[in-house]
Design a protein around this nucleic acid. Sequence first.
RNA 1: GCCGCGGUGAUGAAAUUGGUAAACAUGCGCGACUCAAAAUCGCGUGGGAGCAAUCCCCUGAGAGUUCGAGUCUCUCUCGCGGCACCA
Length: 831
Amino acid sequence: MKNYDYKKIEQKWQKRWEDSGIYKISENSFVGLGYVRPKYYLLDMFPYPSGDGLHMGHTESYTSTDVLYRYKKMKGFNVLHLQGFDSFGLPAENYAIKTGVHPKETTRKNMETYIRQMKSLGFGYDFENKVVTSSPEYYHWTQWIFTKFFEAGLVYKKTDRINWCDSCKTGLANEQVEDGRCERCKSEVIQKNIPGWFFKITDFSEELINDLKDLDWPEHTKKNQINWIGKSDGAEIKFKILSLRLKSEISKIEVFTTRPDTLFGVTYCVLAPEHKIIEELKDSIENWKEVNEYLEKTKRKSEMERIEGKEKTGIELKGIKAINPANKEEVPLFIADYVLAHYGTGAIMAVPAHDERDFEFAEKFTLSKICVINPHSYMGTLPGDSLLDATEKTKKNLEKIQKGEVVYVYDGVLINSGKFDGMSSDEAKKAITEFVGGKITKKYRLRDWSISRQRYWGAPIPIVYSPSGEAYTVPKEHLPWLLPEDVDFIPTGTSPLIKSKELKERTEKIFGKGWTSEVDTMDTFVCSSWYYLRYPDPKNEKEFCSKEKLKQWLPVDLYIGGAEHTYMHLLYARFITKAMKKIGLLDFSEPFLKLRHQGMVLDKDGVKMSKSKGNVVNPDDVVGRFGADAVRLYIMFAGPLEDDVIWNENGVVGLSRFLEKVWKLQFLLSIDIKEPNDLKIEKITHKTIKKVGEDLENLKFNTAISQMMILVNVMEKESGLNIKNYKLLILMLAPLAPHITEELWDILGNNQSIHLSEWPKYDESLAKDDKINFVIQINGKVRDVIEVDVDINENKARGLAEKSENIKKLIEGKEIKKAIFVRGRLLNIII
RNA sequence: GCCGCGGUGAUGAAAUUGGUAAACAUGCGCGACUCAAAAUCGCGUGGGAGCAAUCCCCUGAGAGUUCGAGUCUCUCUCGCGGCACCA
């Protein structure tokens, strides 16, 4: 074969790999070799098998892991790198509603497409060991984990206001609401009071924050998780409620505050409209009619309207007062929807002088403000202020703060606070809390994970109810608790399973007459929260994964996937791991030791690809036109993995040319081994092995490729390329371009697949430059560059510098004040 | 508003982590081959001055630290991502 025919080559090898099963995971590689070779668990975020097929984002991240998989294997690691499908979910169900095709069928077809596409890109997955979340063999164990959580009290049922998408006709977790809209269909989310199951993720809030510090994850991902969990240190303080009519204490409310040091500045208190105590206070509230109207009005508002209408609303509860425990003062009590029922205690003490929201509310309802914090260290400077200005401004700002004209939300020194005057905020937080008998505590904004979905295509929640309505888990011997097939998909807001005759009969047959089954299915995020525990043992029918295999493979060494999963999938998966550890199913508490995100693949104008914009690039199309190897190389070369990649076909040309050059080098091979340029080529080859190895370890695919380009350019230009160095190049390129390298390897007379070869070792003495360009600077400016031995010392360098014509001219007659010598780099002469 | 990330040629980017800014690639220009075109190969390609050797300026703006700053510090600015009435 003379020409590089990528089509032929790629098809040929894809078929041979398939036939020989070189990517198959044998029982051996699961267990036996693990003790000899170090393990490496490499994980992709598995795809949802959508009807659109693989997209370019998948192409990028799966290429990166495929490169690493091949590289690590060549380096002698026993690598676990499997693929699966997150195959439960709404699109297949919605498609079924439209067309009547069962989701099972749609899913099967889509998975086939995905697998075909992944193979066409040359990915070395063993698809016989794929994990499919919608298969009974898999959701068996999703359900089993649920039952274990149930036994351990980590899951519970409650009727609560939850996020509800009226278009998808299902409840949503807090994490699945974006901007008040459904994460999937973007329609507005409303609040609905319905029963549902919850995972106690909040039990792990503290751990979920603390354990992040030992993980090799991108900083911003950690920060986002910490933010999402939203820890606040503060105090709970009780306020007595006084009835003016009865002139006596009728109840108490507890407020949560992060600023107990401002307690003396409280001028009113606020309850969330949903606060339970309101009902209890009803008889003492003189303006109940108006209050009730307000409550009704807020109930009708969606969460979004409440947030959007930033204008504060509320109503005072006439006839009752709250008593500030610090100074026994009576302050008015309000209901206002800027206070959220589900955070803290659903009640706050308002300090308008030191809290922006309270300030705004107080302005609107003309309530008084008391300044209790003196900003001792607050300069109040604005950028560009001169110092004099600043002092003036500080004075003015201070006055304004003290008169309550502006809010001051930072720490300071206490004033107007009785015996606490003069204390710092920090000290006062503790002292005042103690003084009023409050309790120092922490609150989190994280809410328990609502997992009930009123839809069909998901894992059935394995719960049955006795005739009296008591919930029991489906016993192990009846798992998997199969998803019935005799259902109508049309969503009505109650789960389609309710109409299944088969499920009804099955339940009664097993548990007895009058028993009913839970009809909701689980959030698909539950399924995707543990799949990485299944990969080591995908066909185990007795356990979710054997103890030995868990021990051998987990935790995951490197996880690569999109950043959009920061606080959904990644948080849930961490929670599931911790919960499973707590009940003794696992002996590690973090699933993913190292995490990296790939960027987005954008169109040539840098615009996000979307169907509606019609700018979607299809992997099939580009693989057809450029070949898998060129596509793989381009997408790795275009920039750092974590940056966005612009898909520019002009750019792919460069990589095709590169492969063409690599191909043509086979015809330049010198018969005579001892050519004069031999050493030159050999040296740069070894330098390249070193650099490419380091770059691949650090996921710097782009610079690894450019180094190989440099090597190829030298091999092409200098005569005397020998087969030894050419082989080294092919080996290095093998993880990135598996097809062309396999073909060349074969042409060069090797019988075994290049992908079973060892990664080449470099010779340190060859990889090292012996001559370098040494820079001579005068006063920090480059004035000459000379070629010298790498290990040149200062004296020699100075000697050479003084001999340089350029330098001589410039230093003539000047006094050299000093010279800075940097080994192997430069000499800087200061005159 | 808060948190995080970023701004380098025409373009994608690189820069040994404080040491020659722009490697590698695309594009563009000129040339070779060709009847011609494509492909391929060669040379050039940050801006400015000069016939030239060479010199000056240049990493969003401004300051600072340093012999030396794309890299560190501060201020500002623009862009992106996330959170957002969480007390």
